[in-house]
Each structure stands twice: as C-alpha cells, then as structure tokens.
Design a protein around this nucleic acid. Structure first.
Length: 975
RNA sequence: GCGCAGGUGGCGAAAUUGGUAGACGCGCUAGCCUUAGGAGCUAGAGCUCGCAAGAGUGUGGAGGUUCGAGUCCUCUCCUGCGCACCA
C-alpha cells in the first residue's frame, strides 16, 4: 500500500518537465521516414513588447493538442513556431527610445519564447525562424528578384495611398474604409515612385482555387469579395465633333440602347483635355474641387442623394443608335473603379435612375420581362413555330373591399386575371373594358391605369396545338359597383371567378408572368413559381428588339459595338514602404544602364550571390517625410557599384511591407537552415501542403491572399510542387474580457496568460481554453472557469491514490469499462474534428466515474492518462513517471507518455448491456424503463403498455399505432 | 442593399443529424465537514402551478410536414462579421 501522494503543485512539475522535454529533444521532428506526415501550423506571432496575450493560447493550445494527438496516432508531425518581427511597432519604439529595432525585437522574442514555453507546447524549436534574420530575409529578397525577373514586380508612378502619420505608402489591403488600419489617419492620394507586384495576373487563379480549399466559408467569401471579379464589356463613346472617346465599363452591355447619358468621375483625366470645350467650366471646376475635398468616406456617407454637373458643350454619340447624348460629371462615379466613367442606363439601374430623375434626364426602357413555361402541359416547345398575339391583362379591384378578381380557366387549370386579345382599333385599355364585361359580367369597370411595361410570355397552347408568344399589357381597373349580368352557363364553366385578398392572390396565381404583374399592384411579396423561366428581351433597341440578353450581347460583340472584358477589384500590390524596419528591396539604380536601356529605367537587380542586402545601422529611424526611407540618408550604404556595368549605382532605399516575410515562412520551417536554396525540393515535397493552418480571422484578405499569390508564383517557377499552401484553415474565436468587451488596456480588463499559469498552472489554463466554448466561437473569459478546470486536474491527480497495487486484481464494473472505451473513442473523434470542448466534457465524466470507484486498475489509469496527455501534458507526464517505476528497483523504466501510442478502444464495449426505453404517448414522454439490450420489440411494447404510468394515459383509448425506435423509445399513438 | 455566420437556462454550452432538450462546466440554493480557502463532500434546480405526486409549458417569432421537430420546409424578427453609389 502506497502512502498518500503529495499535494498537486503545478509550478514545480510543469517547470520540471518543460526542462526535461527540451533537454531530451522529444519534440524534434525528422524530415522523412515511414510514418505519414502531418504539417500543423499556427500563424506566427508578431513579438510585441507587451508579451503574450490570451489570443495566442486560444489558437496555439488547440493546435498543440491536435499535434500531440496526431503524434500519438503514428504521424510524423511538423509543428513549428517563429517570429514575424518586421513592422512598424518595433520601428516606432526605436524612434521613441533610440534603441535599434533588432535589439528590442531580440528582447521581445526572448520574452515571448519564455512565455510560450511555460504553456508547454510541443514545438520543434530547432526550426525556429525569424523574418528579420538576414539568413531568413535573404530568401524573401530572393523571391523578390524572381518576381522582378518574371516581370511581376515593377516600378510605378501612379498615385498611391499615403499615410501622413505613418509617413509611408500603403497597399489597398492596408486601408480600413479609407483610413490607415494601423493608426486611423485619413489616407491621401500621393503620386510617387513605388514598387508594385502584379498580383492581378493571379486574380483568376486565386479566385478559382478557393473552391478546392477546406476553409471557413466566410474567409473564402471575403477573398472572393476582395478579388471582386466582374464580367462585362467596355464600350467606346465618341465625343461629338472630336477625336476623343470616352471608354466605359458595364456589366450590362445589352442595355446600350438605354444609355441616355454618360457620367465621368470628377477625377477623370479626360476632363482636363476637354476644358476648352466645356462652356460651364467654372461650375465644373467648382464641382471638381468640392469633390476633391470630400474624402471617400464623406462622399459615400452622404447617402443616396446624388450630386452632379453637366459638361455643357460636350456630348457623346451612343454607338448603338448614333444618338447624341449629354455628358455629366458626378461623384457617384468612382475614379478608381474600372474606367472611372459609366454609361448611365436609368431605366435599369437604380443609381442612374435616381440621378436621371433628379436632373430630368431621359429614361428609356430597353428590357422587358419574358416568361417561358418550362414544365407542365403548357411548356414551350422550342422546336415548334410560334404565333404571336397582343393581349390585355385586366387586374380588377373589388368595389368596396381590398380584394381582387381571380380567374380560373376551367379547362386548363390556369389561374390568374382576366385576359383577352386586343382587336383592331382597340388599345389595351379599351380592350380590357370590353373583356371585363364579356368575361365576368360586371358592368361598371373604371380604368385606374396601366401597370408598367409589357410582359412577354412563351407557352404551348395545347388546345390549338401551337406555341404562343403573348405580349401582355397589364392594366388595372376598379369596379364602381357590383352590378352584373348573370353569366351564361358556358361562361361559368369556362371562367371560375373568385374575389381574393392580396395574400390569397399570391397563392392563387399559377404562372410567373401573372406574378410579375401582380407584384406591380401589390408590392413585391409574391414569390416566383417554379415551372417558369424568367428572363429579359430587348425593346426600343432598333433591329435588336426581341433578342434575349445573351443573343444581343453576342450580336453587339460581332458588330464591335462592345468589347467583352473581365475586371477585378483586386489591384496590384503596392510593395514598397518608406520606412526603415523592413527587408531592403534588392535592386540598384544605375544612371548609365538607364541610358542604355530606357525601358528598364536603370533598375539593376542585385545578383543572387550578393544576397542578403542587409539593413545598415542608422542614426535616426524616423521617416524623412520626403517620401524616402531613412536609408536614403546613409550615403555609404546607398552608394554602391552597379552589378551590370560596374559603374556607380544607388541602392533602392524603400523596404518591403510587413506581409513579405509572412508570405512564405511556412516553407522555411521545412528546411530552416538551408543556405543553398529557399527550401530543399525533397523536403518541400515531403511536407507540403500544410494540413492544418490555424489563426485569426483578421488575416482573411491580406496575409492569406498574399501568401497564396507568392505560393502560386513559387509553383510556377517550380520551387513548390502544389498550387495551394494551406489546404485546411481554421479560425480560432476571440477571447473577450469577463465583461464581454474586447480585452484592452483602455478598459483595464486584460487577463494575461502568464498570470493564469502562475495561479492555476499551465494544464488548467490549457484545459480551460479548450473547454470554454467551441474552437471558433468568441467567448468571454471567466477566471472562475479556470477554477473549474483546475478542480478537474486535481481530481485526476487524486486518482493515483485509488490505484490498485500491481499484484492485486481489480474488478471494475462493466459500466465503467464501457464508459472508458467510449470515452477513448469520443475523445479521439472530437480532437480530429476540433471539438475540444466536448472531448473535455467526456473526460470529465470519465474522471468523475473513476473517482467514484473504490479502486482503479493500473491499466485503466494508464489509458486515462494517455487520452488526457494532449490536453494536459505536464500532469500526465508526472503521474506517468510516478507509476513507471518498478516496485522492485525503483528505477524509471519507461519513456515519456508523449511518445506513447493512443490507446485502442474495444468495439464490443461500446454497446450498452442494458438500455433505457422512454415511453411516449402521442410524442410526449410519460414514462421510462430499463431492459436488456437484446430485448425483443414485442416484449418491450408489452412492458410499456402494462406500466402504471402509461396505463393511465391509454386506458379507454384506442391505440392507433405503436412506434419503436430501436434501443431508444416507444411512442404510443392514441386518440 | 448584397453575401456569410449565428439566435437553446442566470452564464459558457451539449444534443449520436428527425427519436427522452439542457450532457459537461461556471454561478446559485440547502446541508455536512474542515488545516477558514478562489477549498472539499452530499443533494437540488429550465420556467409556471403544486407540500408533494404530478400537470402544463419550453430551443428568437408565426405557420407547415411528421407518430415525433432545437434539428426538415415557408415566412419573419434580431445579433455578429465581410463587402458596398462596384457600373
């Protein structure tokens, strides 16, 4: 009999094992072998001076558990960690405190590593990387050289986003509603030289390959939005009496005949060229200046009220109908979007309509709905001829109630409104009057008005055995009174009439053409009905009238009226920053080479053997504000030899953005020490792609799109063997403060992981983080919750006192053994599906049950420790080692529990021996009883009906049927 | 406005995918015990009525399908996230 074990002291045992693990190297990963590989990656942290925050373990602890589980299941797991250490905070800290960023970064990394170490992760630290290490950024620069070589990096002089506070240019991705996402300053447009990466060349692939990724739908959707593909056409509008043309982009080229005016954005370059011709230049100039002063936010925040000014003296020719149309300027047209100019089709575009209405511009309808019956007896037969007919559709309102007349055509089952042909000499209104009297017998219809555009319908007329194309003119009438001629018997069988409320009418209508008309009367709630196909055909479009949208677009294209194009919202990646703390862009500017080759502007790449171009020491890290980085001041560094002509050259002084190093870091972990290549081909082939990538949602459109872009490029130049870097992605939820707000210094509600580890131990913290809610959920921190998981951990600790002696046999109940087996299965399944919270809940149930046993067998205890090992690695290692000693020698005879195999469960124990059957009467639970698992259905039913609690519900009633759900319940249906 | 997630006790949440709603944990209540602690043990608890047995009711709301609905269908309301005068 063992003596009582000492008190659980996480402080002691956790530190002890962390040291032993590190010394023994049990977490070192081999590159290769017979085991299947599994690459599990956490998004690496930016090592800020504040140290670890709760968000880090929220993501890192679950992947660590997942990693340990995979290892125990025979996988060769790569689970590395490193530092994304370039970036503004370190630089700003340097400016303020005059400490070189490299120094503070080193200090921060040390702190981060210690803090991570205290939580007990299984990282292979021999593969640690740091993006600011020249040995690392040599390869970041190398990738840039390759991009340059392939024409994917270029210098541009277009105006870019400039943050006046951070004193640097920014990419579109770095803006948050027009504001610098880092400091919140209003961003300006500033023309300056910059390096840009041609990410747009990859737009289509970046979009298409999203389909093969196992990523959260929301992240994929964000990326689709960001790429912003739109298919349409470009159309040139010639300016009247001028050689100049206005190019517009539209997603609806079929509406070209409806383009009644053009609109330029205030920034449109053509405006300057047209200045002399514009008669109201003063007014236009004022508008331009006003627009320039408004920020983008202001412009859009003003809502839907549109402003604009006509360019008097300028007109354009609509190439479709040669009509002269006015040209306007308005800020609802955005300069940076597509061509910065539009053809306005007010009849079919909401924005254009409100603009046209405000400024009294013509509105020409060029599309009308076409409904084709595609199923049922009246389905349109595409191969047969068509006879056309004009008809009126009369919607008739009741004289005193809010009801409308529904007509059912007795012989066809068709339900809708009064319909009749329009005869010679009639218009739709008069034809409708006549039809109402003829068809319904009501004598006093009053015309209310037409109901909008013609609705076309194609269907098969079964009685006449022919296709019909009907042009329905909808007209609304109201009856003055109910006076009526009694209809003939024939009429009565032909047309069954009923007065219907608007809701009833929706349900009554059988075809979409009628639904479209009804929606014009009764605003919009009528759903379209299956069996019909709704499309549009052209009208008011000259000889193209009657064509479908796709037919028209095809025709226009043939005539070169339009040029079909696909555009993307994604813009090329502005890649240079006028700051110090980043990778130097490895090129040299040479004036002599510029003369030899004006196209290349004298940009000469640093030769590969001279990489890395290291950051020099500077006196001042502060940005110069001139649009040049602080590097420009270091003459000894800037002035160098041109690698091509050996003449004098100047180094590029811009640096790369923070996203550069993180766009490929996952490859370096595979082969972190390689100084011959970025990554060894064999190793890359072995480890790629990443099987599980975990991080926060804030990287949905930047890091994840940049990294995919670089990866695809590296695939193209055959550095990597697979098109996508991260096959599976998961986002951990936020940790909110106890008050439900974000944790922030400002609110004083920050809980730091270190403090929790000190008070409760790393194992309790780990278990709590995973237990607090589903992995992806944002959940509020509760320190009391950690108390709960600490209690759980201590209960596990206490189990060693129940441990039976090696020699003595222990009888554990069937129930317990069954529970143990089921828990092994459930915990494994749950880890695989990232359902850590339910895995822990299952283990709690098991531990509670173990706690209630008088004695626990060694075998069971070991299994319990093993399934707990991925969650609470320290305590299980301690307990494992406690029971590992031989009672004779006292020597430790076993290796770490983390090198053990995941226990197997026994299928035969997963089934219950006895089952609990619930008895329902009409679906309500009234009783329950236990029975052997193999009980016959009839015996169970007999038992159920004979029970007292059941009898009182069924006595005197007729049992209509009895449903038995195997092993679960019996439902008795009575009336 | 468009798209994507979600709405279940006082709280975090479960629910084998159509079969006993609320497992597990926090908090709470009562009792016990003690080395007075952020401790342990036992019991209780969705809500309403009731001393209780029990009955009614209950997964944002309204309908529907079904012997049976948190789960499926229709409509609707609310919350979070992304995009947004996107041509």
């Amino acid at each position: 009999m063992k003596s009582k074990t000492k008190i659980y002291d996480p402080d002691k045992i956790e530190g002890k094992w962390q040291k032993i693990w590190e010394r023994s190297g049990i977490y070192k990963t081999k590159d290769g072998g017979n085991k299947p590989k599994c690459y599990i990656l956490d998004m690496f942290p930016y090592p800020s001076g504040i140290g670890l925050h709760m968000g880090h373990p929220k993501g890192y602890v679950p992947t660590d558990t997942y990693s340990r589980y995979k290892k125990m299941n025979g996988y060769n797991v790569l689970h590395p960690m490193g530092w994304d250490a370039f970036g503004l905070p370190a630089e700003n800290y340097a400016i303020k405190n005059k400490i070189h960023p490299a120094v503070s970064v080193k200090k921060n990394i040390k702190k981060f590593k210690e803090q991570l170490g205290r939580i007990g992760f299984d990282y292979d630290w021999s593969r640690e990387i740091d993006t600011t290490d020249p040995k690392y950024y040599k390869w970041t620069q190398w990738i840039f050289l390759k991009l340059l070589e392939k024409g994917l990096a270029y210098e541009s002089y277009e105006p870019i986003n400039w943050c006046p506070s951070c004193q640097t240019g920014l990419a579109n991705e770095d803006l948050d509603n027009g504001v610098c996402e880092r400091c919140g300053s209003e961003v300006e447009k500033k023309p300056m030289r910059q390096w840009v990466l041609r990410i747009t060349d990859y737009a289509e692939r970046l979009l298409k390959d999203l389909d093969i990724l196992k990523w959260p739908e929301s992240v994929k959707e964000s990326q689709r939005n960001w790429i912003g593909k739109s298919e349409g056409a470009e159309i040139d509008f010639k300016i009247t009496n001028d050689e100049l043309r206005i190019k517009v982009f539209t997603t609806h080229p079929e509406t070209i005949f409806g383009a009644t005016y053009l609109v330029l954005s205030p920034e449109h370059p053509l405006v300057a060229q047209l200045k002399d011709k514009i008669k109201n230049w003063k007014e236009v100039e004022k508008y331009i200046l006003e627009a320039r002063q408004k920020t983008e936010i202001l412009r859009t925040a003003e809502g839907k009220e549109k402003t604009g000014v006509e360019l008097r003296g300028i007109t354009a020719i609509n190439p479709a109908n040669q009509k002269e149309i006015p040209v306007w300027m308005a800020d609802y047209v955005l300069a940076h979007h597509e061509t910065g100019s539009i053809m306005a089709v007010p009849a079919h575009d909401e924005r254009d309509r409100s603009f046209a209405e405000k400024f009294k511009l013509p509105i020409v309808t060029v599309l009308q709905p076409l409904v084709t019956r595609i199923s049922g007896i009246d389905a349109f037969k595409h191969r047969e001829g068509v006879s056309e007919r004009k008809a009126v559709v009369a919607v008739i309102k009741h004289w005193s109630e809010d009801k409308y007349l529904g007509v059912r055509w007795g012989n066809t089952g068709w339900q809708g409104f009064v319909i009749g042909g329009i005869e010679n000499g009639e218009n739709s209104e008069t034809a409708g009057m006549r039809e109402i009297v003829e068809e319904t017998g009501y004598l006093h219809p009053k015309l209310v008005g037409k109901l909008g555009e013609t609705v076309h319908a194609r269907f098969w007329q079964n009685i006449k055995r022919q296709n019909r194309l009907a042009h329905f003119e909808p007209v609304l009438y109201e009856l003055v009174d109910g006076e009526r001629n009694e209809p003939t018997e024939e009429e009565k069988t032909l047309h069954k009439l009923s007065w219907l409320t608007p809701e009833e009418m929706c349900a009554f209508i059988t075809h979409d053409d009628m639904a479209i008309i009804w929606n014009r009367v009764h605003d919009g709630h009528c759903k379209f009905i299956s069996g019909c196909e709704v499309s549009s055909i052209l009208v008011n479009s000259g000889r193209f009238d009657g064509l479908t949208v796709s037919e028209a677009v095809e025709e226009f294209e043939k005539l070169s009226l339009i040029t079909r194009t696909t555009t993307y919202k994604l813009k090329d990646w502005v890649f240079s920053r006028q700051r110090y703390w980043g990778e130097p862009i490895p090129v040299i500017h040479c004036e002599k080479c510029a003369l030899d080759n004006p196209v290349g502007r004298g940009v000469v790449p640093v030769s590969e053997k001279d990489l890395p171009v290291t950051l020099p020491k500077v006196k001042s890290y502060a940005p110069t504000g001139t649009g040049e980085s602080p590097l420009a001041d270091i003459k000894s560094w800037v002035n160098t030899k041109c690698p091509r002509c050996k003449g004098p050259g100047k180094r590029e002084t811009n640096t790369m953005p923070q996203w550069a190093g993180s766009s490929w870091y996952y490859l370096r972990y595979m082969d972190p020490k390689n100084n011959k290549s970025l990554v060894d081909k064999k190793r890359e082939k072995y480890w790629s792609p990443i099987d599980m990538y975990v991080g926060g949602t804030e990287h949905a459109t930047r890091h994840l799109i940049y990294a995919r872009f670089w990866h695809k490029f590296l695939f193209d130049i055959e550095i990597v063997n697979f098109e996508e870097p991260f096959t599976q992605l998961k986002n951990q939820g936020l940790v909110l403060a106890e008050d439900g707000r974000k944790m922030s210094k400002r609110w004083g509600n920050v809980i730091d992981p270190d403090g929790i580890v000190k008070r409760f131990g790393a194992d309790a913290l780990r278990v709590y983080i995973m237990f607090m809610g589903p992995f992806e959920n944002a959940v509020a921190w509760q320190t009391n919750g950690v108390v709960g998981t600490r209690r759980f951990i201590e209960r596990v600790w206490g189990l060693q006192n129940k441990l039976a002696d090696r020699k003595s046999k222990v009888e554990e109940s069937d129930d317990f053994i069954s529970l143990l087996n089921r828990t092994i299965k459930k915990v494994g399944d749950d880890i695989s599906s990232f359902s850590f919270n339910t895995a822990i809940s299952a283990m709690m149930i098991l531990i509670n049950a173990s706690d209630n046993l008088p004695r626990l067998s060694r075998n069971s205890f070991e299994k319990i420790l093993k399934i707990l090992a991925p969650f609470a690695p320290h305590i299980v290692e301690e307990l494992w080692s406690n029971i590992g000693g031989s009672p004779l020698t006292g020597k430790r005879t076993r290796k770490s529990i983390h090198l053990e195999r995941w226990p197997k469960y026994d299928e035969s124990w997963l089934k219950d021996k006895t089952i609990k059957i619930a008895v329902q009467i009409n679906g309500k639970v009234r009783d329950e009883f236990s029975a052997p698992a193999d009980s016959d259905e009839n015996i169970l039913k007999t038992e159920a009906t004979s029970r007292r609690n059941v009898k009182k519900w069924i006595d005197g009633k007729e049992i209509k049927k009895t449903i038995y759900v195997k092993g679960k319940l019996i439902n008795i249906v009575v009336n």
